[in-house]
Amino acid sequence: MNLNFLRAFMAFLVVTAILFHSGLLCQASSEGGPIIRVQETTHAFPPVFEGEKLSHTFTILNQGTTDLNIKRVTTS
């Protein structure tokens, strides 16, 4: 009895490890989460003289089912 339980538990662990490694579990959790979409990832400015202000606004879409939290934006 204990041996069968141990085998079943080991099989569960192996299957869980395989699913996690393949990303299936992550995907499953993301399907119920936020999904970020950016239509434009590159913006080209026309030539400008030094000192002119350069600014562009990108639009971000959330195609998921829960809030999309923007944690931070880093620039370089």
């Binding site: 993301s30 999904i35 400015f45 400008v48 350069l54 990108f58 999309l68 880093t74």
Partner: peptide, 25 residues
Amino acid sequence: KAIIWSNDLQRMSVALYLEGEVIPH
């Protein structure tokens, strides 16, 4: 380059790019 960090587990970071040319007076 600007990188967005979010809680989307499938795409936790997204890179945005700004290009152009600055001409000296």
